[in-house]
Amino acid sequence: MEASNVESIVFGILETVSRCGFQVRGDSDLRNDLDLDSLGTLLILNELEDAFRISLREEDFHQVASAGDIVEILRKAYLGVPAE
């Protein structure tokens, strides 16, 4: 899978779960733009695990603030590369 695909899958999941009604971008703030609370973030984590068939650490998600932060975690976990 390409790095850009990771981003579009992550953004798609964020759009579905948050029901935000707009296109998520890297700088979309999980709390202020997507209205996600901690359970919402956990929901995202579970959806990502399912979509990418990997296991993610909950601790890694405690500090995430933006959609881009999640893409970064996924790139590391899934592709083994940091974001450019």
Binding site: R31, N32, D35, L36, D37, G40
Partner: peptide, 9 residues
Amino acid sequence: LPPSVPPNQ
């Protein structure tokens, strides 16, 4: 207000 509801809701 949050945390009883999600942020901005």
